[in-house]
Amino acid sequence: MRTIVCTLVAIAALLAGYPQAAHGQVRAKAAVTCVSAGQVLEYDCTIKLANARSGEPLSGLTVSVGADMPSMPGMHNVRRVKATEQAEKGAYHVRLELEMHGDWAVHIDLRGAVRDRVVAMLRFEEAEVTDVKPSPSRRGH
């Protein structure tokens, strides 16, 4: 019992050292469209970033994109790829190389004037990429 109490106290002490003050930050939203890049499991994605509140395009950011499979947490990590900014304001391009077809959570990490992460749920299939929407079949209960 003493061990458990000591553990809880130690964990609380460790966590208590963490920053508490919140910073008012710009939140981003993203529209992601992906198409097959011609190679199996390779996709070209265009990401349009905007301020979630004002809708203003977000340009001049360092954008890196990774992905994982929600059905297998922490087990399929796609190495982050840096996105390149396009001529259109707020538009970025990235090529993703996945491990398998299926539903992926695409993580878009922003650095620079805005620090944020936007997560887009996409279903990558051989022919097309679609948004993952909750459907009656997914509920299925």
Partner: peptide, 21 residues
Amino acid sequence: FDHNIEAFDFMMLIYAVLAVT
């Protein structure tokens, strides 16, 4: 993100809690 915690710092937090555990 709201508290500007870097990924590396969060990893260290995870391992600090894991080490205690």
